[in-house]
Design a protein around this nucleic acid. Structure first.
Lengths: 338, 338
DNA sequence: ACACTCTATGTAAACGTTTGCATAAAGGCA
DNA sequence: TGCCTTTATGCAAACGTTTACATAGAGTGT
């Protein structure tokens, strides 16, 4: 016989039915105060532990939300997680997290797990250019799914993000305004990732607007990482005619680039300007402090969580498109070109 | 009637019993190849989705492991998450994550959630000095729980960590060997956190060993963060007789300290040496690159995951104590005192 | 006293699996 | 052929909740 405390046991102790116990837990206002008190007392005294699996099964619905991120090492994910949980805290939702490593096999697998575990909603950071199948499967599945940190043109997918194109445009424009003409680009794998591709496009558009010809020689696509940024920068600075300014479309790339410059004897910003992207927290603590584009990571994640909770609770599934503003954070890594 | 594909439906389609479907999924070798094939075919064709809640309820056991971290912004957490998932990947376990913010109310709440959701095991980073109640509740609960990133003296709790005392001792010793006598300390909230307190003790012990008197004036306890590190360093360098070397017992504190020094016109390491703790990835990319203590974060998390999975699968719950080696990573932020 | 409405509770059928036990079919051996 | 073992499958009871529906009792207005 089960020696485990379940609702039945509590019900027996108090002398009420299981239903009453369930109600005291889920809608306390619907049970008489005296009864409620007795039930709560028994729960306390006998260390009853609510069984979510059973509830989930019965309700055909969980209070777990799935969070899909490409790389847990990205500082941006930290903000996302904190924001999401801040919002979920008092609601008794839990977070199930999956790290895709930019690998679509892993991603599909994780999504399947989420589906089997019947998560109530999904928050996904970033969206691959190649994910129409994914999109379809989520649609069919029918639970709310919000992409964050990205502005999508796809009208069928909700997002809370920012305009990567515009932000990259303004970063590049800033460099141009400072008089730079030879502006290098170090950027993540944009062949696969939409939000990165948008940055490349923004960069190109800004150049074009000022009649500067895009020069593929000083534009490097690489994985996002400190070392990768450093390596890319080394290559750029080894060129016979190195760029006078660099747009590193991720702060971690920028930090790597900064290091390469320093090691090669270039002064930043006197010899070469560097602008980053993301305003991760160390950016302000670099030497020199990094001029960068601030993206509203925390707000995006927070907003997305609010929205998704709303959808879950009201059982709706409309499409939301929120685009937040980015801003240029001017610090000391860029200077007028003389 | 349910239009949702469940085992019953698959069973009906194939013309077998539910049990057979369940078995094809959970122990394929126990069903005849032909039957298996037909079942799998039907599962494929009708997009059957396994319901974990139901399975969990029936089995009285889940395949979810709970991960408790104090601050998702700490880079160390990123490694942990990646390591854990790398290990869980092919096993179909999922990760439920909770961010405690160093707040024991939140922590208790999250643990309760984990308990209600019936997680199969818990990996917890760090352990508060004040958590004997917590310890008791986990013991009673009876699921495997491993603390990582910490060496505990408590024989009832499993850990996979490193010796914070020893690591801090060696960092301080290194500074002493370089001829420093006036060695400041910037450290996290050690009143609450064991692993941080150990660092303070290691620092003090190293001083004592060399007959250097501990000076509370140049020892600052603060929250862990870049800005906090900077503020603490400002205070230290404003002293009439500032320290000639600083042990910042967290790399993020060290990076903040580095910034303060630079802004105040101190050269690192010429005017003041700084040694960090953790070897987070940006440490090597600071200016100057940060000398620091490397702690084996990934290995710890990976080992812990292996152990916990072992315990879950074999239904054992023995206590493990693994202590991994730390190492001194000498870069350019410390120099001989003249 | 009656009919009516409310409110608090109980009853019991789901929810979709797992798994011990029973059984039928097939194979081996005398 | 009959008996025994093995293998593949089915049966049905659990797992611990939720919730639509039923019901009993209390209150209200006439």
């Amino acid at each position: 016989m089960s020696n485990h405390t379940d609702m039945k046991k509590i019900a027996d102790i108090v002398g009420v039915s299981i239903a009453t116990v369930s109600r005291t837990i889920n809608s306390p206002e619907s049970v008489r105060p005296l009864t409620r008190k007795k039930v709560l007392r028994a729960i306390e005294d006998h260390q009853y532990i609510y069984n979510s699996s059973a509830a989930d099964l019965s309700r055909k619905k969980t209070t777990v939300i799935g969070v899909l991120i490409p790389d847990a090492q990205m500082p941006m994910f930290g903000s996302a997680l904190v924001a999401i949980q801040d919002n979920l805290q008092e609601k008794n939702y839990s977070i199930m997290v999956g790290n895709t490593k930019y690998n679509s096999n892993i991603e599909v697998k994780l999504l399947k797990q989420f589906q089997q575990r019947n998560v109530a909603g999904i928050i996904k950071t970033g969206f691959d250019a190649t994910q129409s199948t994914l999109e379809k499967s989520i649609k069919e599945w029918g639970i709310p799914c919000i992409v964050i940190f990205e502005k999508l043109q796809n009208p069928n997918i909700s997002y809370v993000g920012f305009d990567n194109y515009k932000a990259a445009f303004s970063a590049t424009q800033y460099l141009i305004e400072l008089g730079h003409k030879r502006i290098g680009l170090i950027v993540g794998p944009y062949t696969k990732q939409m939000r990165i591709r948008k940055r490349v496009e923004g960069y190109k558009a800004a150049l074009e607007e000022s009649n500067i010809k895009f020069n593929p020689e000083i534009s490097i696509e690489t994985n996002v990482g400190l070392l990768e940024g450093k390596n890319a920068m080394s290559r750029l600075l080894s060129l016979p005619e190195p760029p006078t300014a660099i747009f590193a479309a991720a702060d971690r790339l920028a930090i790597g680039a900064l290091r390469a410059a320093t090691e090669m004897g270039f002064c930043v910003p006197e010899d070469v300007s560097i602008i980053g992207y993301g305003d991760i927290d160390v950016a302000a603590f670099c030497n020199p402090p990094l001029t960068t584009v601030r993206t509203p990571n925390y707000s995006c994640a927070r907003k997305a969580t609010e929205l998704i909770i709303g959808q879950i609770e009201n059982n709706t599934n409309t499409i939301f498109h929120y685009c937040m503003e980015t801003s240029l954070i001017i610090r000391d890594s860029c200077i007028q070109y003389k």
